[in-house]
Nucleic acid binder design. Structure first.
Lengths: 202, 202
DNA sequence: GTCTATAGCTGGATAGAC
DNA sequence: GTCTATCCAGCTATAGAC
């Protein structure tokens, strides 16, 4: 291959290292900290390599989002095929790990058109996948779709989970245990107690 | 008063104009667009006045947040003393106006300690006020606090509302109508149909 | 594929005239 | 209270040597 700009699918060691550095900077210090200078410093690589691999900072952000989103969509789809799809969805929604990055990217996307379009597309794919999996589960439990439409269940769970994470980030937790209990009571009424993978294995 | 730095309580015309410009820039282009140069350009004032009135950009952001939060807390407290507190809360939570600004400020607060502390304090005051007002309302309706703890109701409504606004901002609306209907069915079961102020007046 | 060097701009902040 | 002038740091991006 000639020494031309690499494609998105490419994942050389250098490219991955740059994305890793970008991810860490973004999570720890916010998107404003993700600059060519700081990427170079954090990865031990050269400033100019950012442009060699990504073209512009915009493309770097898109590549970073896409890498995380693809991994996450796959893993979530897997998790929702297990024996307790509602518990699995709830637990994944409440994970801080991949969520912090998402929050920064969404804020950043407010003024980056291309990134925004990418996030929109993936969000829809996530939602459709969740609706399919959870829809099957609710039907299997014999839930009345008039009383509990799958879309309402999924969006409400996602909304509460995201909101709790956002408030936790600014040390506001008033009412959180009660909200968690409300959701978990609903889940428990359909799937019983949460069975952790550790418990299943043991 | 001598020509020294003005206090937060002060609201000269120039100071207000700078805050107005900051607010507009932030809502329309994100917090990264709020710079001294652009504030000056947008308000027709001089760059250096930002430092005269606010000291640092950090203080400007805090002043901007505080101005909006104080207004908003007052107005919300008023709204929740009306005849339909749940409808009032829900409608206010779903308003886009003051919410866009909040989202930007919260993102910005990730790496601005002082701003974050300010947002934390106000968020708690909001929550406490909501719990007091909605708590009274639910008790008045004879709602079983074991089944529907006031904290769970308030946090869930806030979470769903905020999430819908965030997704709308990136053009994702899958399942939104169903989620809205789920919440509004609950409210309707307690307060009946929403009575708009227009309808009350007429 | 990785580096140095540099252009050209924009940022926060201050000094000091008026 | 408002302005000009200015400092210096940091930013994106490109050219071109190796």
């Amino acid at each position: 291959m000639a020494a031309t700009r690499r494609s998105t699918e490419d994942d050389s060691r250098t490219r991955s290292a740059l994305l890793d550095a970008a991810q860490q900077l973004m999570v720890e210090e916010g998107y404003a900290a993700v600059t060519t200078r700081r990427l170079a410093a954090a990865s031990g690589l050269n400033k100019a390599l950012v442009y060699y691999y990504f073209g512009t900072m915009d493309d770097l952000f898109i590549a970073l989002f896409r890498r995380g989103a693809e991994r996450s969509l796959e893993r979530e789809a897997d998790a929702l095929t297990g024996p307790q799809p509602l518990w699995a969805l709830w637990d994944r929604l409440r994970e801080r790990t991949s969520n912090e990055l998402t929050v920064e990217l969404v804020a950043l996307a407010n003024h980056r058109k291309a990134l925004r379009a990418e996030i929109t597309e993936f969000s829809r794919r996530f939602r459709e996948m969740q609706l399919a999996r959870i829809g099957e589960a609710l039907a299997g439990y014999g839930v009345d779709p008039e009383e509990w439409p799958v879309a309402a269940v999924v969006v409400t769970m996602a909304g509460v989970a995201r909101f709790l994470l956002m408030e936790e980030a600014i040390d506001v937790r008033i009412g959180h245990p009660q909200a968690v209990e409300l959701v978990e009571r609903f889940i428990r009424s359909l799937e019983g107690e949460r069975i952790t993978s550790a418990a299943r294995a043991g």
